[in-house]
């Protein structure tokens, strides 16, 4: 038995975290990406830069700020405490919030690129064909942006699975709650269980490769399909 129960739990938790985060990111990222793609406001560049911050910041920096703000003395922590929710640090919910920040650019940027590539022309055609803006978004933009949504979902999911620094900072290492696969590999190495580490690390490597392979082949199909 190459994987222990704890390993399985860690993998399962990673998948749960990544799935929930991806769904939330698509819901949050779509309006942000749409706004960024459409606006001429001076806020476009500052907001775009903020969304892209996790691309360049060390995850420990994001984790540190989230830890402080979600802690008992931080703004978020005081808010959640006053709502009777306690603090979110070292909880699964806290990890989800951290992951949403951490993976935001990986969802927003492909969506924004897709929306910008679609341009105004199909929307104008839809408007002259009696579709109101919401109708046009649902029936024209969403289907045309489907490859962008695929890319965004896959990247958001895979990036969240690969998250380590943020998890360690705000989630700690609590089995079944915050102990995800990437952290579990770290635990194995710490305790010199290299064989166990190999199984998990190899699994993650294969997973990432398959995900990216699927992504690139779907893009190729997409290009043939749409153009």
């Amino acid at each position: 038995m190459p994987l222990t129960q704890a390993d399985f739990n860690a993998v399962l938790l990673s998948l749960q975290l990544a799935s929930l985060t991806t769904v939330l990111l698509l819901l949050i990222g779509t309006p942000i990406a749409w706004w960024l793609a459409q606006t001429n406001s001076w806020l476009k560049q500052p907001l775009g830069a903020i969304v892209a911050l996790p691309l360049v910041l060390p995850p420990t920096v994001i984790g540190f700020y989230l830890l402080v703000s979600m802690g008992p003395h931080g703004y978020i922590g005081q808010l959640t405490q006053s709502l009777g929710l306690g603090t979110l640090t070292f909880t699964f919910t806290g990890l989800v919030i951290g992951s949403v920040f951490y993976s935001l650019p990986f969802v927003v940027q492909p969506l924004q690129n897709a929306f910008e590539a679609i341009g105004r022309a199909p929307l104008e055609a839809a408007a002259t064909l009696r579709a109101n803006p919401w109708d046009a978004f649902c029936t024209v933009v969403l289907p045309l942006a489907k490859p962008g949504f695929m890319t965004a979902a896959i990247l958001g999911f895979a990036h969240t699975v690969g998250e380590f620094g943020v998890v360690l900072m705000i989630g700690g290492n609590i089995p079944g709650k915050t102990q995800v696969a990437s952290v579990q590999i770290y635990n194995h190495v710490e305790t010199l269980e290299y064989a166990q580490a190999h199984w998990l690390a190899g699994g993650m490597l294969a997973f990432s490769f398959i995900v990216l392979l699927a992504l690139y082949s779907s893009r190729r199909r997409g290009r043939q399909g749409w153009q």
Partner: peptide, 12 residues
């Protein structure tokens, strides 16, 4: 009705 210079059909 509006007919655009490049037709502008819905590709999907």
């Amino acid at each position: 009705g509006y007919v655009f210079q490049d037709a502008n059909l819905f590709a999907h």
